[in-house]
Amino acid sequence: MELTTRSLWTLIHGIGFGGLYLLACSGALVELCRCYTAGNQTPLTEDDGRFLRIYLVAMSALAWLAVLTGAYIVYPWYRATPPPGTANLAAFPQRLLLASPSTSAWHSIGMEWKEHVAWLAPICITMAAGVALQYGRNLKDHPQLRRTVLGFVWISLLAAAIAGVFGAMINKSAPVNGGSVIHIVQGEQK
């Protein structure tokens, strides 16, 4: 069982940061709905406010790590230009997708959308973290602010989900591979 450094970075970007962000989104939505709605009569403690602040700041960090590793580590490998006359495009995913009409839309729609829409996630969640840092548990006393933050977190979830789904499907059609090989486990020989 082995892995290339490029596929390891793709995993770190997609599953490590992106996947964890998607999971964390559901937690943020539940927390914002459960604790900060006007109908909730339980008084919020300073710990509740601190928890929300730390949680949203951690989510912001995840979102930024996901887009930055995607744009500056994985994407350059994806869009690499093959030397003239290259017949095997396996190491050039973008060109491999564009070479066939049955796969070209994965780039022209999938990657073109993913590479931009993904950045809405850190914008939205950083805003949410900023509001939480500013208001903490007092967010409960600002229902309009809370509803808007909730809406932006929903949009960030949608943006991250679009990026994640297209990322997974694109990597399935034209995987980012190459770099040095990392041997994980030596298999048994038959």
């Binding site: 931009h116 950045w119 809405l120 914008i123 939205c124 950083t126 805003m127 900023g130 509001v131 500013q134 208001y135 007092n138 006393d141 600002h142 229902p143 309009q144 602010l145 808007t148 933050v149 932006f152």
Partner: peptide, 26 residues
């Protein structure tokens, strides 16, 4: 202001700026 003593301007600034950033990106 709302019932809370804390003004909502700081939150509004963060929210509107996020909208501006999203449109600017596109």
């Amino acid at each position: 202001a709302t019932s809370a003593a804390q003004p909502d301007g700081a939150g509004a600034a963060a929210i509107l700026a996020a909208g501006i950033g999203a449109l600017a990106l596109a």
